[in-house]
């Protein structure tokens, strides 16, 4: 299996601003790739370059072997796109929109089934301008699927959706993957990426700062697993002296970093030997979100509540 997307040294400048700074990544065929990053990191810019909607400043980009900018017309028959701020003709209904796309792409499509797939069946005959934000988003997804694309580019497809609808979209993404399609996804919901993505890249200020499968990224960039108990701050002080391990204390809550799984026994023994009152223990490990906040926070250090950069 080859790469659906290959990017080398991609740079995009808006005037003086370097929105994307010489990034490299590849997306294997048939995988779900999640592209993560804080607001303004350069996600949409990158996606739009891959979709052939925006011209790159420099670098080498191949999508299905095509140059997205110069071979746009050919590429657009093979990819499906939901832009971040999807809009459509105000006085057109979802069903009409799907039929319109079907004719443009010269494909036969079961409009009702497609609308059911994105849970928009009940709004098949409502004009676009009266759809809710989430319903508009769902129509965007439906339209991106009309031509059975090889790659789906979904720029924040679940932003603004209710929890149920988000799960609906997840099911659609899983289905696309089962059908062997490649999905390029951006999202601010880290658990979504952790759940769906085979591959993740995190971009910040136009530079990729972490890349790999979610577990790989957590292993490479996360803290070790921790054992946590509820107890007084004095327990924390006791453990700091007793154990040669990182200890954090927060409001009646003590966390001790473990060296490995069996380390739990050593830590528990130390807690018990303190003679101080303690309850309930659990092991805690980093989620992708913890890693993300850690990585992005490190770079923008001070942005989240601390002192601003000098």
């Amino acid at each position: 299996m080859g790469d659906a997307i290959a990017v080398h040294g991609l740079t995009k400048q808006y005037g003086d601003l370097t929105a994307v700074n010489s990034i490299d990544f590849t997306v294997p065929e048939g995988k779900v790739f999640a592209f993560l990053g804080p607001n303004g990191a350069g996600k949409t810019t990158t996606v739009e370059i891959l979709e052939g909607l925006r011209r790159r400043t420099s670098g080498d980009v191949k999508v299905l072997g095509l140059d997205p900018w110069t071979d746009g017309l050919e590429l657009h028959r093979k990819i499906g796109v939901i832009p971040q701020d999807f809009r459509f003709f105000e006085k057109t209904t979802p069903r009409e929109a799907i039929q319109y796309y079907a004719t443009l792409f010269n494909v036969k499509v079961d409009a009702s089934a497609l609308l059911e797939l994105v849970a928009l069946g009940d709004k098949a005959h409502a004009n676009f301008d009266v759809l809710s934000g989430g319903q508009k988003q769902k129509l965007g997804l439906a339209l991106s699927l009309v031509a059975s694309p090889t790659i789906c580019f979904l720029d924040e497809p679940t932003t603004g959706l209710d929890p149920q609808a988000r799960r609906g979209i997840w099911d659609v993404i899983r289905k696309l993957r089962r059908e062997g399609r490649t999905v390029f996804l951006t999202t601010h919901y880290l658990e979504e990426a952790e759940l769906l993505a085979d591959q993740v890249a995190i971009i910040n200020h136009g530079t990729i700062i972490a890349e790999g499968s979610p577990t790989q990224i957590i292993r490479d960039h996360g803290r070790p697993e921790r054992l946590s108990v509820d107890g007084p701050p004095s327990l924390g002080e006791f453990l700091k002296k007793r154990l040669d391990r990182a200890v954090t204390v927060t409001e009646g809550h003590v966390e001790v970093q473990m060296r490995d799984k069996s380390d739990a026994l050593v830590v528990l023994q130390a807690i018990e030997s303190s003679g101080l009152p303690w309850t309930g223990f659990a092991t805690v490990s980093d989620t992708l979100e913890d890693v993300f906040v850690g990585l992005v926070g490190k770079m923008d250090d001070g942005v989240l509540g601390g002192a601003p950069k000098p």
Binding site: F86, F89, F105
Partner: peptide
């Protein structure tokens, strides 16, 4: 403004 041309550019139209 509504990026409708961009949307249409993604089709064979």
């Amino acid at each position: 403004k509504d990026h409708l041309f961009r949307q249409l550019s993604l089709t064979p139209l």
